[in-house]
């Protein structure tokens, strides 16, 4: 098979990233510059500051991706970029850089949905086998996506309020952890016990939707009530109890949906896919309940935002010659 290389760019939130991907499944380079240290100062991502950092980084990161991959523009088949969803000012940097590159080198331009990117990160690990189901969990999304075939997305379940990652951030703040608190909560959860019995939302309902705002409120109330009474709560037990609720709901609903769809693969995707508790519980439950369905979990390096996944997702568009024009714009609310 002829090698087809895609230069991919991602700038939807607080990471500037560029990657060169071969045939949608092999990483030749994947450079990620994280702004997290900057946004930690504010307890969350500040859109204007994210946009400013992207302009500072964008050409250096693309240069490093090209140099690391040891390729030249003549070797490329296309330039791909995240069009949305994300922060509009941040997306615009990637979109305009990608358009300039495509124009300057007469290359086709491919617009990629960021959420599709997270799902296709798995293609860098294992070939995707359709039909499949993907659980996409991040700071902005919690979705169960059914893919009948390459390029087709059906959202069969989603959060009705907060995304799972958002709940982690808020709970992290209540626990006094530095932003973003997700990783630390995961670590603490492994040392504590689920003793506080937080609610498992929507578990009994006959759908695949999620809700995390009730859990968040229950958590905050627990902590505030204890403070008022002068009681000491164990932070590790709190983390463990919170995480147990999130993981149980995610895993139960996902496995339920997996049983009710004719799937060959179950994929985990998105920033929260880095959560050890979630990875372990999903592995264990799937092995027990659906041993014939292949479970694919991306390595930690491909869970957070990165351009490699955008290059992976762009490959099917290249195959189908679905190209964007030079008037491509960022779409902050882009749907799958």
């Amino acid at each position: 098979m002829e090698k087809k290389l895609i230069l991919a760019i991602e700038s939807s939130c607080d990471e500037t990233s560029a990657a060169v991907i071969e045939n949608g499944n092999k990483i030749l380079s994947n450079i990620v510059a994280s702004q997290i240290k900057s946004h930690m100062r504010f307890g969350g991502v500040v859109p204007e500051i994210a946009s400013r950092h992207h302009v500072e980084q964008v050409t250096q990161i693309i240069e490093e991706a090209m140099e690391t991959a040891e390729v030249d523009y003549e070797d490329l088949a296309a330039v791909a970029v995240t069009q949305g969803p994300g922060l509009v000012g941040a997306l615009l940097i990637g979109v305009n850089a990608a358009k300039a590159l495509a124009y300057a080198h007469h290359l086709p331009l491919i617009a990629v949905n960021h959420m599709a990117g997270h799902i296709y990160a798995n293609q860098l690990v294992e070939p995707m086998k359709f039909p499949l189901l993907a659980l996409v969990v991040s700071g902005g999304h919690t979705e169960l996506v059914y893919m009948e075939e390459d390029g087709s997305f059906e959202i069969v379940g989603e959060t009705r309020d907060d995304a799972a990652g958002e709940a982690y951030d808020k709970v992290g703040r209540v626990l006094g952890l530095t932003y973003p608190g997700g990783k630390k909560i995961d670590e603490m959860a492994h040392k504590g016990q689920d003793v506080y019995g937080f609610p498992r939302a929507m578990l009994k309902e006959d759908n695949y939707d999620f809700s995390f705002s009730g859990l968040k409120s229950a958590f905050i109330n627990k902590v505030h009530n204890a403070e008022q009474k002068g009681e000491q709560l164990d932070p590790e037990d709190l983390a463990a109890s919170f995480q147990a609720s999130v993981v149980e709901v995610l895993v139960t609903k996902t496995v339920q949906a997996a049983k009710e769809h004719p799937i060959k693969q179950l994929l985990l995707a998105g920033g929260v896919a880095a959560n050890k508790g979630l990875r372990e519980a999903l592995k264990e439950t799937m092995a027990k309940e659906l041993p014939d369905v292949e479970l694919v979990i991306p390595p930690l390096s491909l869970c957070g935002d990165n351009a490699a996944m955008i290059g992976a997702a762009a490959f099917s568009a290249l195959d189908k010659q679905e190209f964007a024009a030079l008037d491509l714009n960022a779409k902050p609310g882009l749907l799958l």
């Binding site: 946009s51 302009v55 050409t59 000012g89 850089a97 590159l101 124009y103 300057a104």
Partner: peptide, 19 residues
């Protein structure tokens, strides 16, 4: 305009660098 500036500067610097 912050956004306007970034569109021009990103386009200009990417063109200049890549060419």
């Amino acid at each position: 305009s912050y956004t306007g500036l970034r569109i021009g500067v990103t386009t200009a610097k990417t063109l200049a660098w890549t060419l």
